[in-house]
């Protein structure tokens, strides 16, 4: 870990200093600093900023402060009642200890778990631009099948972000250029030629809150995560979904996938295909296939195509069944 100056943020603007990085729960940042992958000159601790509130929005939405801890969000009665997919996604992630510390903002901005990225002694375009992407020919079983580039095939590891993407949440940002609102689906970039940049945020921009808009049918929503052991493991594939079925026909649907791309992957094409169609197993699979048509798997991660197809079908079927009851 490189030495750094430590400051407590009093206003969002305290992060503007060159070389400054915000410290929230630190469960990702401190990890990467120990590994020598993150080398901030200044740590600006945002934990004293009043950002941990979970507030009602008019019409049934929620504003979740960037500093709200993952465990508090997961346990919030409104979240559990109106947006179960979000609570479930959070509970499927990390461990009790980590969720007690990890924040909403930090969770969104956590970096990839690509093993080369997390090792400063190895080449990686994300931590050292231009050094190459050894994952492409090396270990990529857990990495992207959608939206990747020749320079990077990393995935975004968050579970929570997948639920937020499905729910159409937005991110409120405060920064040098003022305040702005970014959809969660537009927060993370695709890697392209500049995989070193994970998101569209500029230096010094602080996430202050995440807003989940009202979505009445989201009370019937769910998160399913496939992983290599029963708990305390990152996803190898995950599905967040909400389904609105009327008379056996899909009136509306929200679908997002995790562990398949550089961003939480909102399956817009699949949603589009499903709206107005019968809520049947065959239709669900067909919709997943529409989205998966763009997949470009590598040597060892093609299984994710089948995995996502099967999981998506099963999750939507389960939601449709629930709607019938």
């Amino acid at each position: 870990m490189k030495t750094f100056a430590y400051r407590t943020a009093v206003t969002p603007a305290d992060g503007l200093e060159p070389g400054a990085v915000f410290l929230a729960g630190g469960t990702n940042l401190v990890d990467l600093m120990k590994l020598g992958v993150a080398t901030p000159d200044v740590l600006v601790d945002v934990n004293k900023l009043p950002l941990d509130e979970i507030a009602d929005l008019p019409g049934g939405g929620l504003r979740i402060g960037a500093g709200a801890r993952n465990s508090d969000v997961a346990a919030d009665p409104r979240v559990r009642r109106d947006f179960p997919v979000l609570s479930e996604a959070l509970l499927a992630g990390a461990s009790g200890q980590l969720r007690n510390v990890a924040t909403t903002g930090g969770n969104l901005l956590q970096r990839t778990r690509c093993r080369y990225f997390m090792d400063a002694s190895k080449p990686c375009n994300k931590h050292t631009p231009g050094s190459g992407c050894p994952a492409r020919d090396g270990d990529h079983r857990d990495l992207a099948i959608l939206g990747a580039s020749a320079s990077c095939v990393a995935t975004h590891p968050s579970d929570m972000a997948v639920a937020l993407a499905a729910l159409g949440a937005t991110v409120r940002v405060d920064g040098p250029a003022g305040r702005r609102v970014i959809p969660v689906t537009g927060l993370h970039r695709l890697p392209g030629d500049t995989p070193e940049r994970d998101t569209v945020l500029e230096h010094g921009e602080l996430i202050t809150a995440v807003e989940v808009p009202p979505l009445p049918f989201a009370h019937r929503s769910t998160y399913r995560k496939a992983r290599d052991r029963a708990s305390y493991a990152f996803a190898v594939g995950s599905v967040a979904a909400a389904l609105d079925v009327h008379d056996g026909v899909v009136r509306d649907v929200r679908l997002a996938w995790g562990a398949v791309a550089h961003r939480p992957w909102r399956a817009f094409a699949a949603e589009e295909r499903l709206r107005g169609r019968p809520a049947t197993r065959a239709e669900f699979t067909a919709a997943a296939d529409v989205e998966l048509a763009a997949a470009e798997p590598l040597r060892d991660n093609a299984y994710k195509i089948n995995l996502l197809r099967r999981m998506t079908t099963a999750v939507l079927e389960r939601l449709a069944e629930g709607a019938r009851r």
Partner: peptide, 24 residues
């Protein structure tokens, strides 16, 4: 998990190398 080019087991930590947890 061996990366032959690196000559190393690249999942060399307890998040990458899974051992059974309570829930297993």
């Amino acid at each position: 998990v061996l990366d032959p080019a690196m000559g190393e087991w690249v999942n060399h930590d307890l998040a990458g190398y899974h051992v059974p947890v309570h829930a297993d």
